[in-house]
């Protein structure tokens, strides 16, 4: 399974990968991008099976990235991992095509339960 992690924080990309490994995705291959622009290129290069993406990022935010991704025809499973999780953002995320939104701070169990509920394996 190829998982693309998109976050402008290198620290957070590392933390998300560690949590995913502990949540049962220890055999996953990971690719990284620091913003939406890099992520669009990474999707073309790596053809990921799952994208986990921050919302607030410089250059291109996660929501804009998701909209452009869906506009291109890609239906790759997509979830936000973000420090903001208001009901408005949840609704905006889902209407743009996200499967879920994980709020920071999170736990390994949060990843396990959310990904299982979303049917990602």
């Amino acid at each position: 399974m190829k998982i693309l992690i998109v976050d402008d924080s290198k620290a957070m990309r590392m933390i998300v990968m560690r949590h995913l490994r502990q949540a049962g995705y220890e055999d996953a291959e990971f690719a990284e991008a620091a913003n939406g622009i890099e992520a669009l290129a990474a999707v073309a290069e790596h053809d990921p099976d799952l994208i986990l993406c921050d919302w607030n990022m410089p250059e291109m935010d996660g929501h804009t990235f998701l909209v452009q991704l869906r506009s291109s025809g890609s239906q790759v499973p997509f979830g936000f991992v973000t420090s903001e999780s208001t009901p408005d953002m949840q609704a905006t995320a889902r209407s743009a095509g996200a499967l879920f939104l994980i709020a920071k701070p999170f736990t390994v169990e949060t990843f396990r339960e959310t990904l299982n509920s979303a049917g990602v394996s």
């Binding site: 402008d8 420090s83 701070p105």
Partner: peptide, 25 residues
């Protein structure tokens, strides 16, 4: 990243009072 998470937590808690809040970088 710690400031980002704390800021997100503050926004979540204050959203009941002010729904217009935006978190920067």
């Amino acid at each position: 990243e710690l400031a980002n998470m704390v800021g997100g937590g503050v926004k979540k808690r204050m959203a009941e009072i002010d729904t217009t809040l935006k978190l920067g970088l």
